[in-house]
Protein backbone atom coordinates (compact mmCIF):
# COMPACT_ATOMS: atom_id res chain seq x y z
CA UNK A 1 0.00 0.00 0.00
CA UNK A 2 1.15 3.50 -0.73
CA UNK A 3 1.19 6.36 1.75
CA UNK A 4 -0.44 9.68 0.94
CA UNK A 5 1.95 12.30 -0.39
CA UNK A 6 3.89 14.42 2.07
CA UNK A 7 6.68 16.96 2.20
CA UNK A 8 10.00 15.64 3.27
CA UNK A 9 12.84 17.48 4.90
CA UNK A 10 16.06 16.28 6.44
CA UNK A 11 17.16 17.97 9.62
CA UNK A 12 20.85 18.06 10.37
CA UNK A 13 20.43 19.42 13.87
CA UNK A 14 17.82 19.43 16.59
CA UNK A 15 17.31 23.16 16.09
CA UNK A 16 16.65 22.61 12.42
CA UNK A 17 14.23 19.81 13.21
CA UNK A 18 12.36 22.05 15.59
CA UNK A 19 12.27 24.88 13.05
CA UNK A 20 10.97 22.54 10.38
CA UNK A 21 8.30 21.22 12.72
CA UNK A 22 7.21 24.77 13.36
CA UNK A 23 7.22 25.54 9.67
CA UNK A 24 5.01 22.60 8.72
CA UNK A 25 2.75 22.93 11.71
CA UNK A 26 0.73 20.31 13.51
CA UNK A 27 0.50 17.90 10.63
CA UNK A 28 4.23 17.33 10.59
CA UNK A 29 5.75 14.21 12.11
CA UNK A 30 9.27 13.31 13.08
CA UNK A 31 10.70 10.36 11.17
CA UNK A 32 13.19 8.34 13.18
CA UNK A 33 13.14 4.55 12.79
CA UNK A 34 9.74 4.77 11.16
CA UNK A 35 8.64 1.32 12.25
CA UNK A 36 5.46 2.48 13.91
CA UNK A 37 4.81 5.42 11.62
CA UNK A 38 5.41 3.97 8.16
CA UNK A 39 3.00 1.02 8.51
CA UNK A 40 0.32 3.45 9.70
CA UNK A 41 1.05 5.66 6.71
CA UNK A 42 0.91 2.73 4.32
CA UNK A 43 -2.52 1.83 5.66
CA UNK A 44 -3.34 5.56 5.40
CA UNK A 45 -4.28 5.56 9.06
CA UNK A 46 -1.72 8.35 9.40
CA UNK A 47 -1.38 11.01 6.72
CA UNK A 48 1.16 13.56 7.96
CA UNK A 49 1.61 16.56 5.69
CA UNK A 50 5.34 16.52 6.28
CA UNK A 51 8.01 14.24 7.65
CA UNK A 52 11.05 15.68 9.32
CA UNK A 53 13.77 13.09 8.99
CA UNK A 54 16.05 13.27 12.00
CA UNK A 55 18.13 10.23 11.06
CA UNK A 56 20.99 12.48 10.05
CA UNK A 57 21.35 14.11 13.46
CA UNK A 58 24.35 12.16 14.62
CA UNK A 59 24.49 13.63 18.11
CA UNK A 60 21.16 12.01 18.91
CA UNK A 61 22.68 8.58 18.44
CA UNK A 62 24.60 8.05 21.62
CA UNK A 63 24.88 6.09 24.83
CA UNK A 64 26.72 7.94 27.59
CA UNK A 65 27.51 7.12 31.14
CA UNK A 66 27.15 10.24 33.22
CA UNK A 67 27.85 9.52 36.87
CA UNK A 68 24.87 7.65 38.21
CA UNK A 69 22.97 8.30 35.00
CA UNK A 70 22.82 6.56 31.66
CA UNK A 71 21.96 8.91 28.81
CA UNK A 72 20.52 7.24 25.73
CA UNK A 73 20.12 9.42 22.65
CA UNK A 74 16.73 9.46 21.00
CA UNK A 75 18.12 8.11 17.75
CA UNK A 76 19.92 5.17 19.32
CA UNK A 77 18.73 2.00 17.61
CA UNK A 78 17.49 -1.00 19.58
CA UNK A 79 20.35 -3.06 18.22
CA UNK A 80 22.90 -0.55 19.49
CA UNK A 81 21.28 -0.53 22.90
CA UNK A 82 21.21 -4.27 23.30
CA UNK A 83 24.79 -4.66 22.09
CA UNK A 84 26.16 -1.79 24.16
CA UNK A 85 28.75 -2.77 26.74
CA UNK A 86 27.91 0.36 28.71
CA UNK A 87 24.22 -0.50 28.81
CA UNK A 88 24.99 -4.09 29.74
CA UNK A 89 27.17 -2.86 32.61
CA UNK A 90 25.08 0.04 33.84
CA UNK A 91 21.50 -0.89 33.06
CA UNK A 92 21.40 -4.48 31.80
CA UNK A 93 17.61 -4.57 32.04
CA UNK A 94 17.51 -2.01 29.23
CA UNK A 95 19.77 -4.18 27.08
CA UNK A 96 17.47 -7.14 27.75
CA UNK A 97 14.37 -5.19 26.83
CA UNK A 98 16.00 -3.83 23.66
CA UNK A 99 16.81 -7.36 22.51
CA UNK A 100 13.13 -8.27 22.68
CA UNK A 101 11.65 -5.38 20.73
CA UNK A 102 10.33 -6.54 17.35
CA UNK A 103 12.78 -8.57 15.29
CA UNK A 104 16.31 -8.14 13.94
CA UNK A 105 15.23 -5.94 11.06
CA UNK A 106 13.07 -3.80 13.32
CA UNK A 107 15.85 -3.51 15.89
CA UNK A 108 18.22 -2.28 13.21
CA UNK A 109 15.94 0.66 12.49
CA UNK A 110 13.76 1.34 15.52
CA UNK A 111 14.91 3.90 18.04
CA UNK A 112 14.62 4.73 21.72
CA UNK A 113 13.10 8.14 21.02
CA UNK A 114 10.63 6.71 18.54
CA UNK A 115 9.23 4.21 21.02
CA UNK A 116 9.05 6.81 23.78
CA UNK A 117 7.38 9.47 21.62
CA UNK A 118 4.95 7.00 19.99
CA UNK A 119 3.71 6.00 23.46
CA UNK A 120 2.05 2.77 22.39
CA UNK A 121 0.58 1.01 25.41
CA UNK A 122 2.49 -2.06 24.32
CA UNK A 123 5.81 -0.20 24.06
CA UNK A 124 8.48 -1.71 26.28
CA UNK A 125 10.80 1.24 26.95
CA UNK A 126 8.08 3.47 28.41
CA UNK A 127 7.56 0.92 31.19
CA UNK A 128 11.22 1.02 32.08
CA UNK A 129 11.37 4.81 31.88
CA UNK A 130 8.38 5.15 34.17
CA UNK A 131 9.40 2.63 36.81
CA UNK A 132 12.95 3.94 37.03
CA UNK A 133 11.90 7.59 37.18
CA UNK A 134 13.80 8.32 33.99
CA UNK A 135 13.77 11.77 32.46
CA UNK A 136 12.70 12.45 28.92
CA UNK A 137 14.85 15.27 27.56
CA UNK A 138 13.53 17.32 24.66
CA UNK A 139 14.89 20.26 22.73
CA UNK A 140 12.92 22.45 25.15
CA UNK A 141 12.89 20.88 28.57
CA UNK A 142 13.28 17.82 30.71
CA UNK A 143 10.10 15.92 31.48
CA UNK A 144 10.00 13.27 34.20
CA UNK A 145 8.65 10.03 32.73
CA UNK A 146 5.78 10.05 35.23
CA UNK A 147 4.54 13.29 33.63
CA UNK A 148 5.32 12.27 30.06
CA UNK A 149 2.89 9.45 29.20
CA UNK A 150 -0.56 11.02 29.20
CA UNK A 151 -2.75 8.53 27.45
CA UNK A 152 -2.77 5.99 24.64
CA UNK A 153 -0.42 7.39 21.95
CA UNK A 154 -0.49 10.69 23.84
CA UNK A 155 2.47 12.39 25.49
CA UNK A 156 3.35 15.73 27.01
CA UNK A 157 5.27 16.68 23.87
CA UNK A 158 4.38 19.97 22.21
CA UNK A 159 4.01 20.26 18.44
CA UNK A 160 7.57 21.42 17.75
CA UNK A 161 9.15 19.47 20.56
CA UNK A 162 11.61 16.69 19.78
CA UNK A 163 12.76 14.00 22.18
CA UNK A 164 16.54 14.17 22.26
CA UNK A 165 17.47 11.68 24.93
CA UNK A 166 16.21 9.53 27.74
CA UNK A 167 18.13 9.66 31.00
CA UNK A 168 17.91 6.51 33.09
CA UNK A 169 19.43 5.96 36.50
CA UNK A 170 22.21 3.40 36.65
CA UNK A 171 20.91 0.12 38.04
CA UNK A 172 22.76 -3.10 37.66
CA UNK A 173 21.29 -5.23 40.40
CA UNK A 174 18.94 -8.17 39.89
CA UNK A 175 16.53 -7.54 37.06
CA UNK A 176 14.22 -9.23 34.59
CA UNK A 177 11.76 -8.38 31.85
CA UNK A 178 9.12 -11.01 31.23
CA UNK A 179 7.36 -10.35 27.97
CA UNK A 180 4.34 -12.57 27.43
CA UNK A 181 3.28 -12.95 23.79
CA UNK A 182 2.10 -15.53 21.30
CA UNK A 183 4.76 -15.09 18.65
CA UNK A 184 8.30 -14.09 19.38
CA UNK A 185 8.11 -10.87 17.39
CA UNK A 186 4.75 -9.79 18.77
CA UNK A 187 4.14 -6.91 21.07
CA UNK A 188 3.63 -7.87 24.68
CA UNK A 189 0.19 -9.13 25.67
CA UNK A 190 1.48 -8.17 29.09
CA UNK A 191 5.05 -7.38 30.06
CA UNK A 192 6.53 -7.05 33.52
CA UNK A 193 9.88 -5.50 34.36
CA UNK A 194 11.52 -5.93 37.74
CA UNK A 195 14.64 -4.09 38.85
CA UNK A 196 16.25 -4.15 42.25
CA UNK A 197 17.81 -0.82 43.08
CA UNK A 198 18.69 1.23 46.14
CA UNK A 199 17.65 -1.64 48.34
CA UNK A 200 14.13 -1.79 46.95
CA UNK A 201 12.31 -3.09 43.91
CA UNK A 202 10.95 -1.23 40.96
CA UNK A 203 8.19 -3.01 39.10
CA UNK A 204 6.72 -1.81 35.82
CA UNK A 205 3.88 -3.23 33.72
CA UNK A 206 3.41 -3.04 29.96
CA UNK A 207 0.10 -3.10 28.09
CA UNK A 208 -2.26 -3.25 31.04
CA UNK A 209 -3.64 0.24 30.50
CA UNK A 210 -3.40 3.16 28.11
CA UNK A 211 -0.03 4.14 29.56
CA UNK A 212 2.72 2.16 31.25
CA UNK A 213 2.03 1.34 34.87
CA UNK A 214 4.30 1.31 37.88
CA UNK A 215 3.20 -1.36 40.32
CA UNK A 216 3.55 0.71 43.47
CA UNK A 217 1.59 -1.69 45.62
CA UNK A 218 3.91 -4.54 44.69
CA UNK A 219 6.98 -2.44 45.39
CA UNK A 220 5.59 -1.47 48.80
CA UNK A 221 4.68 -5.02 49.72
CA UNK A 222 8.18 -6.16 48.83
CA UNK A 223 9.59 -3.31 50.87
CA UNK A 224 7.63 -4.59 53.83
CA UNK A 225 9.20 -7.98 53.35
CA UNK A 226 6.50 -9.81 51.45
CA UNK A 227 7.63 -12.75 49.35
CA UNK A 228 7.48 -12.39 45.57
CA UNK A 229 4.38 -14.54 45.36
CA UNK A 230 2.44 -12.52 47.93
CA UNK A 231 3.63 -9.16 46.67
CA UNK A 232 2.78 -10.07 43.10
CA UNK A 233 -0.87 -10.45 44.07
CA UNK A 234 -0.95 -6.65 44.19
CA UNK A 235 0.25 -6.27 40.61
CA UNK A 236 -3.31 -5.94 39.39
CA UNK A 237 -4.39 -3.47 42.08
CA UNK A 238 -6.16 -0.60 40.43
CA UNK A 239 -5.69 -1.96 36.92
CA UNK A 240 -8.50 -1.61 34.42
CA UNK A 241 -6.99 -2.95 31.22
CA UNK A 242 -8.89 -2.99 27.96
CA UNK A 243 -9.48 -6.44 26.50
CA UNK A 244 -8.28 -7.21 23.02
CA UNK A 245 -8.08 -10.12 20.60
CA UNK A 246 -5.37 -11.80 22.61
CA UNK A 247 -6.50 -11.30 26.16
CA UNK A 248 -9.54 -10.40 28.20
CA UNK A 249 -9.16 -7.75 30.94
CA UNK A 250 -9.30 -10.52 33.57
CA UNK A 251 -6.58 -12.46 31.84
CA UNK A 252 -4.35 -9.41 31.59
CA UNK A 253 -4.77 -8.79 35.31
CA UNK A 254 -3.99 -12.41 36.01
CA UNK A 255 -0.91 -12.23 33.80
CA UNK A 256 0.22 -9.08 35.58
CA UNK A 257 0.24 -11.03 38.83
CA UNK A 258 1.83 -14.20 37.50
CA UNK A 259 4.46 -12.43 35.45
CA UNK A 260 5.33 -10.09 38.31
CA UNK A 261 6.06 -13.09 40.49
CA UNK A 262 8.14 -14.63 37.73
CA UNK A 263 10.02 -11.44 36.97
CA UNK A 264 11.03 -11.01 40.60
CA UNK A 265 11.93 -14.66 41.05
CA UNK A 266 13.89 -14.81 37.82
CA UNK A 267 15.64 -11.54 38.65
CA UNK A 268 16.76 -13.15 41.87
CA UNK A 269 17.96 -16.16 39.99
CA UNK A 270 15.22 -18.55 40.98
CA UNK A 271 13.43 -20.71 38.42
Amino acid sequence: MIPAAFEYARASSVEEASKLLKKFGEDAKVLAGGHSLIPLMRLRLAQPAALIDINGIKELDHIKEDGQKLRVGALTRHVTIHNSAVVKAKLPLLAEIASEVGDNQVRNMGTMGGVIAHADAAGDYPTLALMLDADIVTNQRTIPARDFFKDLFTTALGPDEVVTEVVFPVANGPHKYVKFRRRLFDWAIVGVAAQKMNGGWRIGLTNVGPTPVRANAVEEALQKGAKAEEAAQHASDGLDPAGDLRASPEYKKHLARVLTKRAINQAEGHQ
Partner: peptide
Protein backbone atom coordinates in the same frame (compact mmCIF):
# COMPACT_ATOMS: atom_id res chain seq x y z
CA UNK B 1 11.39 -7.34 1.49
CA UNK B 2 14.50 -7.74 3.66
CA UNK B 3 17.68 -6.26 2.20
CA UNK B 4 20.97 -5.10 3.68
CA UNK B 5 21.44 -1.38 4.19
CA UNK B 6 25.04 -0.60 5.12
CA UNK B 7 25.34 -4.23 6.14
CA UNK B 8 22.27 -4.30 8.36
CA UNK B 9 19.14 -6.28 7.59
CA UNK B 10 16.25 -3.93 7.06
CA UNK B 11 12.69 -4.32 5.84
CA UNK B 12 12.71 -2.21 2.70
CA UNK B 13 8.93 -1.76 2.87
CA UNK B 14 9.34 0.20 6.07
CA UNK B 15 11.81 2.71 4.79
CA UNK B 16 11.41 5.46 2.24
CA UNK B 17 13.71 5.55 -0.74
CA UNK B 18 14.85 9.05 0.25
CA UNK B 19 16.19 7.57 3.48
Amino acid sequence: CTILVDGKAVKSCTMFAVQ
